[in-house]
Amino acid sequence: MLPNPTLDQLQVFLAVAETGSFSAAARALNRAQSVVSYTIANLEAQLEVGLFERSGTRQSKLTDAGKAMLEDARRILADLEVIRARVRSLKDGLEAEVSVAISVMVPTALMVEVLKEFRDRFPSVSMRLNVGELGAVVDLVSSGQSTIGIGGAVFKKDDTLHVERIGHSFMIPVVAADHPLAAIDRPLTIADVREEVQLVVTDQTEQTKGRDFNVLSYRTWRVSDVATKHHLVRGGLGWGGLPASLVREDLLSGRLVHLDLEAYEQSEYPIYAIRKLANPPGPAAAWMIEAFRSGLTQCPSRSEFMNRRVQFGDAVAAE
C-alpha cells in the first residue's frame, strides 16, 4: 500500500525540521513532546524511511531522505494555506483595515492620489501605512505587518510571497547647484567623483545587508533614509542618487543638477505588488494594487523624463 501521510503529520515534520528539535516543535505546536515523537515515528513507518538521525543529541538532524522530503512538505502545506486563504476570502466581506508598505521609489504624487481615492471609495476601511527603504517593504509583508507591499528590492526568492511587477521608477545622480561637481561642464568620470562625498542610504533590513549599489566614491556618508539624503544633497553636503519623481521639482527649479555620470547605473527600477500567497487581498487591497498599477503605467521612462526635464528647463530659462 502506498504511503498516505496526513497534513497533520507533515505539519509536525516541518515544525521539527524548522525548530531543530522535538521539544521545540512541541512548544511551537502546543503539544506534548511524546505526541510529536509518536507522530514522526508513524510518519517514518508509513514512508519506510528515517527522517531524523537519532544521534542522542538534543538537535534533530535531518537524514538525506528527510532533506529530500522537506521541500515537498513545504510546498504541500503552502498549497493548503492558499486553499484556506481562498475560502476565507470567499466567506469574508470588505476588510476592516488595509496595511500597506510603500517604497520610496513610488512617486509621492501618485501615492497621495491613490490614497485619496481609496479614502473616498472605502470610507469604512482603516489604513495602516508604512513607507520603507530598499528591502523594508518585503520584510514588512513577510513578517505580516503589512498586507500588501508596493515597491521593489526583491533580492531573495521567497516561495511564501506572490510578487508581480506593476511598474517602474529610476534613480538619477544629482548634486546641489552650488556643488563643485555641478560646475564641471562635461560628462563626468569616476575620477571626478571618487574624492567627493557620496551620500548613501544604508538598508536597515537583512534583504541587502552588506551590499552596496552604485557606490562610486571613496568618501561616503551613510544615512538611514531617502528623505534625509534628499535634504543633505540639496544642502550641498554631497552627491548621490535619488528617485526621479522625488527630485523632479528640484531639477526644474535649478536647485539640483543632474550629473552626467555614465558609471552610475541608471536603468529602470522595477516596482512590484507583493503579498503573501496565504493572504490574498480583499476587495479594498485588490483595488489599491490595480490603482497603483494603472498609475505607474503612466510614469515616463528615464529617457522621456530627461527629455521633459530638458524641455521644461529650457522654457524656464527662456522666461
Rank of each mutant, 00 (worst) to 15 (best):
E195V: 14
V223S: 04
V215D: 03
T220Y: 05
L199R: 07
L216R: 05
Q204F: 10
V197D: 07
R194V: 13
A227E: 05
N214R: 02
A227C: 00
D225L: 01
T202G: 14
K209G: 08
V197A: 07
Q204P: 13
V193M: 01
E196Q: 15
S224T: 10
I190E: 08
R219M: 15
S224G: 01
D212A: 00
T220H: 12
W221R: 11
L199C: 05
T228Q: 01
V215E: 05
H230K: 05
R234S: 07
R222A: 15
T208V: 03
R234C: 06
V193P: 03
G210S: 00
E196C: 14
H231S: 04
R222K: 14
A191L: 03
V200Y: 10
T220S: 09
I190V: 15
D192P: 04
V197M: 14
D225W: 07
E195G: 12
V201E: 03
N214C: 00
V201Q: 08
E206V: 10
T208G: 01
E206S: 14
Q204S: 15
V201H: 03
R222Y: 12
L216H: 11
N214L: 00
T202F: 11
V215Y: 00
T220P: 12
K209T: 14
E195F: 12
V223Y: 03
T208E: 05
G235D: 12
T202R: 15
L199K: 04
Q198E: 13
V233I: 14
S217Q: 09
R234N: 09
V197S: 11
V226F: 08
V193G: 06
V193A: 07
G210A: 00
D192W: 09
F213C: 00
T202Y: 11
K229C: 12
R194W: 03
H230C: 01
V201K: 02
K229F: 02
T208K: 02
V233A: 11
S224Y: 02
V197H: 08
S217K: 07
G235S: 07
D212G: 02
K229N: 01
R194P: 02
T202A: 15
Q204K: 12
Q198H: 10
E196Y: 13
F213N: 06
K229L: 13
H231N: 03
L199G: 00
E196S: 14
L232E: 08
I190N: 06
T220G: 11
D192I: 06
T202C: 10
T220I: 10
V193D: 02
V226C: 09
W221V: 15
H231Y: 00
T228W: 01
S224I: 10
V201P: 01
V233N: 03
K209M: 13
G235K: 05
Y218L: 14
R211H: 06
K209D: 08
F213G: 03
H230N: 12
T205A: 12
K229H: 08
Q198T: 12
V193H: 03
R211Q: 04
Q198V: 09
T208C: 02
G210Y: 02
V200G: 12
A191V: 05
N214V: 02
Q207V: 15
T205M: 10
D225T: 02
H230A: 12
S217C: 09
D203S: 12
T228H: 04
S224N: 07
R234Y: 09
E206M: 07
R222V: 13
T220M: 10
Q204R: 13
E196L: 11
V226I: 08
K209N: 13
R194S: 11
F213R: 03
I190A: 06
T202L: 13
S217D: 09
V193Y: 04
D212Y: 01
